[in-house]
Design a protein around this nucleic acid. Sequence first.
DNA 1: CTAAACTTTCAAAATATTTTGAAAGTTTAG
DNA 2: CTAAACTTTCAAAATATTTTGAAAGTTTAG
Lengths: 166, 166
Amino acid sequence: MTFEEAKDTFIHTWGTLATQWGISRSMAQLHALLLISPNPMSTEEIMEQLQISRGNASMTLRDLMDWGLISKQLKPGERKEFFWAEKDIWKVARQVAKERRRREITPVVEVLNELKNIPTDTPEAQEFQRVMTGLSNVVGFADNTLNAVIKAEENWLMSQFLKVFR
Amino acid sequence: MTFEEAKDTFIHTWGTLATQWGISRSMAQLHALLLISPNPMSTEEIMEQLQISRGNASMTLRDLMDWGLISKQLKPGERKEFFWAEKDIWKVARQVAKERRRREITPVVEVLNELKNIPTDTPEAQEFQRVMTGLSNVVGFADNTLNAVIKAEENWLMSQFLKVFR
DNA sequence: CTAAACTTTCAAAATATTTTGAAAGTTTAG
DNA sequence: CTAAACTTTCAAAATATTTTGAAAGTTTAG
């Protein structure tokens, strides 16, 4: 496989994985492109490489910055903005875990805890409460796991990684 | 909050969380409905409750069965099929982890391992390999974490859950 | 075997999401 | 201040996804 083929395969595969986990394809693909670029890229270069419009590029770049995965860089003497991605993948994982926890998991934990408190005056309501309690535990587990990842040092993550191999 | 309100809030919240994680809204909502139903439900009842068409119900029920989250039940003397969901949420979580790992993570692990092997004859290719190696480790970590969840007993999960609280 | 009672399929319609690109906005060199 | 060089916005278009419902398929009581 040539480098160019590998690059395209990667961008494509990464986009597919992302959509399966609820992240938009262009966000994943643009992130992938910046991850493997040795240098910061301009909007022009990104548009060219991914064959997307200026508007799309601008919006997706902003989303990636909101997620804390890429940053702007200004080159002295140039008007254009350049973008680069954090390359330490463990840092990237921690950042993604942090954002997803904040945006998606924590709100659901709160709703579930509220729903646990309805009066259990009918068999339906009792069953409902049982399910809410179970879900609350499982979502809480996910929440805590993400939180552990967020707070972890790379070494800790590595040790967990190796541990499961035993 | 009345029981009916709580029920609607739950079905809605669950559908939202699901779409954020790449699971279709109707699948999550139908699953939610069956989870909180004390009795198996017929297709008719489900259509009525969620206000969806027969075709939609039929297809979504099949998807849920493919995921191993619900089962058919035939009541003696009735022609209709009834459906019920596994109520043990830890079992549900293990099943979901298993399916997502099989369908989504394992294939990506394989692609990444292949991409690690391209010749590193240019600086670009070297950077590429570095990123692939990093991703391979992180995705491998996720893969192993899911696998640990799958193989775990409820007690182990509970202990992990409590551990992170310390 | 027949026909009633059900379920599944799938093309078309509806809906949701993503993308485009021109216009508006912003920044800075001179 | 001006105008060139850029970025952002957002309505409309394109595309993708989901839903519908009628027709086809299947099962079983009799």
